[in-house]
Structures are given as structure tokens and as C-alpha cells.
């Protein structure tokens, strides 16, 4: 079944936007004192957010983690409020409380972001439980890294989601590394998707740099979840182009390995696919790229011109 044109273009736009957004962040991190805290990028992995979120409907929820930019942009986050939050500004989506590591936008269906590895799955169980409890037609997606599947919380959550047939899709973004550890240094399992078997749910492996393939896989999982047939574990095999964070010298990542994966760039592949299918003209593609570039510039301008929070605003937004 061919993917509708508007979905293909939606994914293309989302890929271009995430890539540009993060390229800008890489540059901004070079400027001393501009971007506070750690900077964790998903450059090279953008197809996962783009493909999965394109399969979602309004009302669906995503729970993401420390490597969230592509997920959030694909879910429809305004680049301005993300950028402002990353800068630590008052106009950021979380008023400067979060910074880049736990960007949460409940208003677009992206609540409960956590930088605690493995924390997403149990909360996704709760979010999906609420959808089932209220009889909503919606589903919850939980993005985790390969490393997160080493946490007990991941396994408890999959078991419970399976037991209760909850409408949740666990998406494991296997980028070959957890911190400085290669996959084979933290688990004997070759395919994270195989973990699904232990919980009697489907486990699907998909090319994590192929947005349309991810979209199709997510669409199936969404249909299952929404039909009350329970959760799915999707493993997207991809690669982390950058270090764990921007200060990571990547001394443990072989240069040839990085180069090989760069050659499988998910953005370039999507661009070629839509052009080959004749879904967009080269002129319209350049126009889209120019527009994306303008969006990112505008986000940076907005962030730079926004004020920092007043120190005492630290006391707001907490109970008790």
C-alpha cells in the first residue's frame, strides 16, 4: 500500500526540520556560555520520530527521553519554545525549569519526558491505562534507547502492558550505543525486538533510517493497540552520529563506522525517495528547505531575544 503523499511530505518536513534544528545546536554549542547544561542530540536518528509520529492521530501521546528533539518536533512542537527552553529562557516550553533534558509539552501530547533512563515505559503504561480506562480511541508511544532495556523498569512495564492489553507502542531507538557502550557490550541480545517474546507481544525490527518503513510499522502497531490487541515493541536500528552528548570526544566510536552510517543518512534517503516518486519538485523541495531554515533561524532569534527567568521564579510550579 502506497503511503499517501501528504504523509510522505509530512515526514520529509519533519526530518529536514529536526536535522536543521540540531545542526544549529551543534554550532551554538561551540559558542562559550550560550547553551547551558548537557546537549544531547539525535542527529542521524531523525527518521524514528518522523516515521512514528506520522502514524499517530490527534489525541495520541508520546513519552520521550533525554534524546527527544526529533520526537517532539515530529509531534508538532513549536521550534521556538523548544529552543528557548534549551537556552534556559522564560519563554521556553518549561519556563527554564527543564532545559534540554526533559522537554515536556503536554499540550501537544508529549508529557512526562524523563532523562532517567528506563523511566518512560512505566509512565507510558499509566498513560495508556488512562486511555483504555476512559475508552478513548487513542494510543501511547514510548521512545526508549537500547540501553534503557537494561533497566528493570522496562521489563516490568512491558509485562504489565501486555497483561492488560494496554494501547501502547514501545519504540526502541537502537542507535548502537548506550553512553560509551556498544550494544554487544551491554546485552547478549542482537535484536532488542526479541525481548518482546518474553512478554507475548509482537517484536518488530525495522530499518531505523527509513522513515516510510517506520511509519508503516507504527501504523500496524497503532491499529493493534487501538483495536484492544495490546502493545507492540518496535526496534528501529539506527546510529548515533554525534557523541552521547556534544562534549563527548567519541574516542570509542570507530571513524569508519560513523562514515558508513552517515552514508545511510535518513534525511537524504527521504529526500531522494520523494523526488524519485515525483511527490515534490526540486523547486518545491528547495522552498521547503528554505522554510525549514527560516523556522530554525526564527527559533534562535526568539530564544536569544527572550529574557531569562527572574531568579525567584524558581519557586513557582512546585506543590507544597
Amino acid at each position: 500500500m502506497a503511503i499517501p503523499k501528504d504523509k510522505m511530505l509530512e515526514m520529509l518536513h519533519s526530518l529536514l526540520l529536526s536535522r536543521r534544528f540540531e545542526e544549529a545546536l551543534t554550532e551554538l554549542c561551540q559558542v562559550e556560555g550560550k547553551i547551558p547544561g548537557m546537549m544531547i542530540l539525535c542527529t542521524g536518528q531523525e527518521a524514528v520520530g518522523a516515521g512514528v509520529c506520522a502514524a499517530l492521530r490527534p489525541g495520541d501521546v508520546i513519552i520521550t527521553n533525554h534524546r527527544s528533539h526529533a520526537h517532539l518536533l515530529a509531534k508538532g512542537a513549536d521550534p521556538k519554545v523548544l529552543m528557548a527552553e534549551i537556552y534556559g529562557k522564560r519563554t521556553g516550553c518549561n519556563k527554564g525549569k527543564s532545559g534540554t533534558l526533559h522537554l515536556a509539552l503536554p499540550e501537544i501530547g508529549a508529557p512526562c519526558t524523563s532523562t532517567v533512563v528506563g523511566a518512560g515505559p512505566p509512565m507510558a503504561v499509566g498513560r495508556a491505562f488512562a486511555q483504555q480506562y476512559r475508552g478513548e480511541p487513542a494510543v501511547t508511544v514510548c521512545f526508549v534507547g537500547d540501553g534503557a532495556t537494561g533497566e528493570g523498569s522496562f521489563h516490568e512495564a512491558l509485562n504489565l502492558a501486555s497483561l492488560w492489553n494496554l494501547p501502547v507502542i514501545f519504540v526502541c531507538e537502537n542507535n548502537c550505543y548506550a553512553g560509551a557502550q556498544r550494544l554487544e557490550e551491554h546485552t547478549r541480545i542482537e535484536n532488542i525486538a526479541d525481548r518482546a517474546a518474553a512478554y507475548c507481544m509482537p517484536g518488530v525490527v525495522v530499518d531505523g533510517n527509513d522513515a516510510p518503513a517506520i511509519y508503516t510499522t507504527a501504523l500496524d502497531a497503532r491499529a493493534r493497540a487501538a483495536a484492544g490487541q495490546g502493545p507492540t515493541l518496535i526496534e528501529c536500528k539506527t546510529y548515533r552520529w554525534r557523541g552521547h552528548g556534544e562534549s563527548d570526544p567519541q574516542h570509542y566510536q570507530p571513524k569508519e563506522e560513523i562514515a558508513a552510517w552517515r552514508a545511510r543518512c535518513p534525511v537524504a534517503r527521504m529526500r531522494e525517495a520523494v523526488l524519485a516518486l515525483g511527490l515534490i519538485s526540486t523547486d518545491d523541495l528547495s522552498a521547503m528547505e528554505t522554510k525549514v531554515d527560516a523556522l530554525v533561524r526564527e527559533a534562535i532569534r526568539f530564544a536569544e531575544e527572550s529574557p531569562y527567568p527572574e531568579p525567584r521564579e524558581a519557586l513557582e510550579d512546585v506543590y507544597a
Binding site: P36, K97, G99, Y308, V318, A320
Partner: peptide, 10 residues
């Protein structure tokens, strides 16, 4: 009595 906020002034 607040969680530690991220933004530098906070």
C-alpha cells in the same frame, strides 16, 4: 524546597 531547576539564573 524545590527541585533543582536547569536554567542558570534559576
Amino acid at each position: 524546597d524545590i527541585p533543582v531547576p536547569a536554567s542558570p539564573p534559576l
